[in-house]
Amino acid sequence: MHEAAIAQAVLDTALEALPDKDSRITAITVVAGVLAGVEEECLTAYFNELCKCTAAEGACLRLVIEPAHLICKECDKQTNYAGDGRLALQCSACGGFNRLEGGKALYLDSVEVES
């Protein structure tokens, strides 16, 4: 549900990046960490409505999901956490406890612009 606010912020940030007022945005790439909690279908649905009558109308929204990392506190073994399945509390190699790092990014990477 917070995707509505995020879709609006994506649109505002993209429009600010327009080099001139006659150009149009055809594609937007957003990077979201897995812990940012952004649901792609939901974000796209809001974006497709909000972009109407703006210079980004009809733009393709690409969402790149960045994983978080589970790092063993004992042996430093690192595994990716992609948000699916159960978050592993313990290291698969040595059984030590893991800590979770990263996965919090939420930024507009780039826009494709045509004049």
Partner: peptide, 14 residues
């Protein structure tokens, strides 16, 4: 033309 932005989406809120 690709324009690199790399700006936090929630920067206005931040």
């Amino acid at each position: 033309m690709r324009v690199s932005v790399r700006k936090s989406i929630l920067s206005a809120n931040d």
